[in-house]
Amino acid sequence: MVATSHDVMPDIELYQPADEATALDLADRLGNEGWLLGGGQDTYGWLKDRNKTPSAMIELTQIDAWKGITENSDGSIEIGAVTTLTEIAKNPLVQSRYGLLAKAASIVASPQIRNVGTLGGNLVQDTRCWYYRRGLDCYRAGGNICYADSPEGLNREHALFGASRCVAVSPSDTAPALVALDATMVVSSSSGQREISAQDFFVGPDRDILHMTVLNEGEILTAVRIPNTWANAEFYWEKVADRNVWDFALVNIAAVFKTTGGTIEDSRIACGAVECVPRRLTEVESAIRGQARSESTANSVAEMATADARPLNYNNFKVPLMQNLVKRAIRG
């Protein structure tokens, strides 16, 4: 018999390392038992409801090396993973060069959550499928069933693309922005550091149904590097959620364009909340290359964006919504 009474924090060890080496060592030593704690916005619910039961938390927010926004000599910027979303949204450098990310960070959840929530946390947060969040032993929780993808499942917020047994979506607002900006994720562990492109950082259920990212046990996302390739490009960001505050996207879109004389030379477009990973619209990008950034170009490719969509019972609306957002992004 499962207890349905929740909302009480269990006993748990709390580690508060102040330097990188200690944190990485702890992550290595504790493995899956060591829950990485950023702003805690995707932590306490899990733990208080006892749907995730790690024995320890490793708080990362005291490590200065993983905080803040710095400019590199090549013009790229590096954002520490435990930098708060508020800081990113308000940072002059981010605002001036990568307004797309500033905007995406400024619309995550609510002001209170952005004040404590970190970029790393927003990127590696778990999916919001309510069945999974309820603590049910579904595929994503290591079980053998998906409750959302069934003839009657409540899946209004679920995936159009890339479902494989699990139909959950990526809830992050900053992830599509970073994919569009061609960012790189810096992943550290006690055995070293590796860099992964933002696009490859996220993983779908076909490849790994238990995780949302390619982070291995003992690894920590420590920074995000944004190349200057798309600095000061033309940006488009929009999030459509049920509510204007404190909601996850029904669909969001992040797009960057390089144009000359109104003609699109290059672009990168990514949509969130339609797949388990931010969905890059490469076919659309190819199709609009050399085209005017106009209403007619937008209309001509909108359906292409959803060509592979497989709507579930209640999320048909995401198809026209995604098409509309693609149109809005392209026509600017």
Binding site: M1, V2, T4, L136, D137, G142, G143, N144, Y147
Partner: peptide, 11 residues
């Protein structure tokens, strides 16, 4: 595992 209503079943 727990089934949808919390009862133990074979996983």
């Amino acid at each position: 595992k727990r089934d949808v209503w919390g009862e133990e079943v074979i996983l």
